[in-house]
Design a protein around this nucleic acid. Structure first.
Ligand SMILES: [Mn+2]
Ligand SMILES: [Mn+2]
Ligand SMILES: [Mn+2]
Ligand SMILES: [Mn+2]
Lengths: 217, 217
DNA sequence: ATATATTTTTAGACAAGTCTAAAAATTATA
DNA sequence: TATAATTTTTAGACTTGTCTAAAAATATAT
């Protein structure tokens, strides 16, 4: 049995492991999970004892196959619940995260799979993140960050990397939503801001914002 | 903030308080919650400290208004989730309890109220139990136990008091479900068993079974 | 290569929730 | 009403998950 706390650590390691090196550092986990390095060390030992993580003192952590599957299944639940909240319960995309953080820990195979079916087997959550299947797999992400595009190129906004409500409210305020067609008009060398066009309107977005927007096609 | 454990104790006291005396005994709570009397004593002190329960040493426990509302809201969530699982996710009535035990602790006002609306403001759960509203109130139960009826009287099965999967599977096996029209044909004095008719079929049910079946109209 | 800064681990403490065993209070019985 | 049985509480211990402060290891900079 994997506890709620263990699940949160597995998920943190899973996410940190994606965007970076093979081994994840104690401090990185502590920051992500808003705890302290010493707590992470303790927990990581437990995960290693349960064969969910590889751990070498001072060398960082990585997930075993079992650990990665367990983490992916938590992420699967998180994202399916987010879809449920938005599609069925009138939540907006900036309201779902905290509730999904609770719902992702509910233990019931049948519940997850029936929920998946009820939602029509969605492939992405309301923020464009892919939903792992029961084996923890998902289709590779094909969208590319705005900063890597050429001037004049166009695409559909299909993933926002930051799912914090502050960022999502910013997007709401600027009338930007998943599915919008966006055209890159200019890159400003001074501050790396980007001018984009969407819905016949031009707006300038900062580098920090651009870093979180991914277009496809 | 009320913890998960505190919610479970509140619920136990709430349920025990209904079908009996004003003050609930330590042992009764321990049995219901499958813990030990000493654990109950500890927890009950905490509930009293938080003004959720009235507690006098050796004299038992009862809920304050705050405690009763908190308990009713947990019960509300439990029953709404049971309806969701049966109506939307193809669970049968003997599969919902354990999952609802987890879901009832999810904290989100919006979630509960949107779920309620999504389900069409149901008044009863899949076992016929009433669903409290946001103020913890529900319409008084008007159904009456089979053992209290006269021979020849007829009614609709509208509440099963025992929601354990063993009992519900027994009902499934005997093709008895909520909404069935049932007629009382005979009471056997020897063992208090009851002969009933439903769907043009006669069956004999034991006293233990009859105690859990409530008919309305 | 050595000294300094940073990261990570260890040691020890604490809160929540639980348990067993013993003591105290209440209730039942003779 | 005195004694026995039962219930409830207390005392002390244990687990999980967390923290702070100090020690140890690793990384960085001269
Ligand atoms: Mn999320
Ligand atoms: Mn998301
Ligand atoms: Mn139930
Ligand atoms: Mn029920």
């Amino acid at each position: 049995m994997i506890t709620l706390s263990e699940e949160n650590y597995l998920k943190a390691i899973y996410h940190l492991g994606k965007q970076g090196a093979a081994a994840v550092s104690t401090n990185a986990i502590a920051e992500k999970i808003e705890s302290k390095a010493s707590s992470v060390t303790d927990m990581v030992k437990k995960l290693a004892d349960k064969n969910l993580a590889h751990y070498i003192k001072y060398q960082g952590v990585s997930l075993t196959n079992d650990g990665r599957l367990a983490a992916a299944l938590v992420v699967r639940k998180h994202r399916l619940w987010e879809v449920f909240l938005v599609e069925k319960l009138n939540f907006s995309w900036d309201e779902v995260h905290d509730v999904a953080e609770q719902l992702e820990h509910i233990k019931s195979q049948k519940l997850v799979n029936e929920l998946d079916a009820f939602l029509g087997f969605p492939t992405h959550d309301p923020h464009g993140d892919p939903i792992p299947d029961k084996d923890g797999n998902y289709a590779p992400i094909k969208s590319v960050n705005i900063l890597e595009l050429e001037i004049g190129s166009e695409g559909v906004l299909s993933l926002v990397k930051d799912s914090s409500d502050v960022f999502l409210k910013y997007l709401n305020k600027n009338n930007l939503a998943l599915g919008d067609v966006i055209k890159v008009l200019d890159f400003e060398p001074f501050d790396d801001s980007v001018t984009i066009q969407t819905k016949n309107k031009q707006i300038i977005i900062s580098k920090e914002v651009a870093k979180n927007l991914y277009l496809s096609q």
